[in-house]
């Protein structure tokens, strides 16, 4: 589920400028740290109502992460637009390292724990001493993801802003000829992608309760796999891919071993790239990097 939110960011940026934004996973990580800082700060300020604290945190993390996304595009990608294909890719990897090290230095390299905010759950089944329970946390995460993705889908398919984004994605030059400010639209794409990644960061923090400066890499690879699996460049594909990766991981952990669950994502990435590089909902004409 969470991967879907991150995957959407990869897919959007790829669609519009044909580039994999390698720093995207790290924006997610920054989003998680911003959430942690916000939650601790709000607790320090004595705001005890959990819904209010979460809502404020969401706004704070998404807003600041959006600013990060905007800056990354301005600093690392825009100056290189129009140069050879590998240049922005290298710049992206550089940006990813910068973000990781920045967080490592400012937040320390140790794992940051957090207490569970929403305890309890909903008992589905209680039989012979076995309980199957869906925690409130899981429900909240699924609900948040669904709401965010629904709003986002509506934005892209129904609003003038969404049309502008799709126009830029399909034909940047023509979009300019229609009076669309293409630079601004590209910036906005990064901003929206980063905000979604920050929401994912907050959910990750709530769910796992521990974060460190390296989570961006792993989550980034998994979300990227989700995007590729669904068909990179396709928004519904990214959501679908995110769901599938999540499910596959769960089943893998159940039948094989939890320690190797990360292997699953990598294996899928390789298999998809070999056998169906366009993904499930991908378009044939998409160019591979």
């Amino acid at each position: 589920m969470i991967y879907g939110l991150i995957a959407v960011g990869y897919t959007m940026v790829y669609g519009i400028i044909g580039m994999i934004n390698f720093a995207h996973g790290d924006i997610f990580m920054v989003g998680a740290f911003l959430s942690l800082i916000a939650l601790l700060a709000l607790a320090g300020l004595g705001i005890t109502s959990i819904p209010i604290a979460l809502a404020l945190t969401l706004l704070f993390a998404a807003g600041l992460a959006a600013l990060y996304g905007w800056t990354v595009e301005r600093v690392a990608y825009r100056p290189l637009r129009g140069s050879f294909r590998l240049a922005p890719l290298i710049s992206a990897i550089g940006m990813s390292i910068v973000l990781q090290n920045f967080v490592q230095v400012s937040q320390g390299a140790r794992v940051k724990p957090m207490t569970a905010l929403i305890p309890g759950g909903w008992e589905l089944m209680n039989q012979d001493g076995f309980t199957v329970q869906l925690s409130w946390m899981q429900i909240a995460i699924v609900a948040t993801t669904l709401i965010v993705l629904t709003i986002f889908t509506w934005l892209v398919t129904k609003t003038p802003l969404g049309r502008t984004m799709r126009a830029c994605e399909q034909d940047l030059k023509m979009a300019g000829l229609l009076g669309i400010d293409t630079d601004r639209t590209i910036s906005l794409t990064f901003v929206i992608g980063a905000a979604l990644a920050a929401v994912a960061g907050l959910l990750f923090l709530l769910y796992y309760g521990v974060i460190d400066f390296f989570i961006g890499f792993l989550a980034g690879v998994k979300a990227f796999t989700a995007a590729v699996l669904g068909g990179i460049g396709s928004l519904p594909g990214a959501v679908l891919g995110g769901l599938l990766i999540g499910l596959i991981e769960v089943f893998w952990s159940a039948y094989f071993s939890v320690e190797y669950k990360d292997v699953a994502a990598f294996a899928i990435l390789i298999l998809v790239l070999i056998f169906r590089p366009t993904g499930i909902l991908g378009r044939a004409e998409v160019e591979k990097v």
Partner: peptide
């Protein structure tokens, strides 16, 4: 470019360049 095109200049460029994954209506709206 985008400011020039907002001065009541319009171009139907070489190769049509319509948005293939948008409906005819959406293309016209653009």
């Amino acid at each position: 470019t985008h400011l020039i095109m907002r001065r009541q200049i319009a171009q139907a460029p070489e190769g049509r360049r319509i948005f293939g994954r948008m409906t005819v209506y959406e293309n016209l709206l653009m």
